[in-house]
Amino acid sequence: MSEAPKPEPRRPEAATVAVQDDGEDASPLQPELLISDLLRYGVAASLALVTLGTVVTFFRHPDYLVSSEALQRLTSPHPVPHTLGDVVAGALAARGQAFVMAGLLVMMAVPVMRVALSLLIFRQQKDRLYVGITATVLAMLILSFLLGAVH
């Protein structure tokens, strides 16, 4: 974050691609570009959902614009949707906050999808060591959602 992003790739060959399997070069996937695009479009989709949800919220609750009592309720500890089912049900009922929550969930899913994509790329490169490492990280990410739900 401390560097200004410089968009254009300067090198045709990938430094981070595995060196194994020299015979099978010219992979059809451009790993860095794929991952970069996934990150960018994922973040954009998430922010769009959050913004849409916020607009819907104020349309459905015009009192939020004038009443100061509602704030007390909104900033002190209170139940918020915290299962996938809650969020989906809320979104189907066109509840603005459920859209916002869906957007936040998309944001949380972006790194998970990134790891899943890396797993596919390492598998395509037949890099078994890194397939193992990546699969472990992915399992831990999925575990975090499951464990949190049990807690």
């Binding site: 918020v80 915290h82 299962t83 906050q97 916002v100 969930l105 949380m108 959602f145 464990l147």
Partner: peptide, 12 residues
Amino acid sequence: GVYFARGNIDPF
């Protein structure tokens, strides 16, 4: 993931 499941991520 843990914070979400615990209900600590408030959309508002």
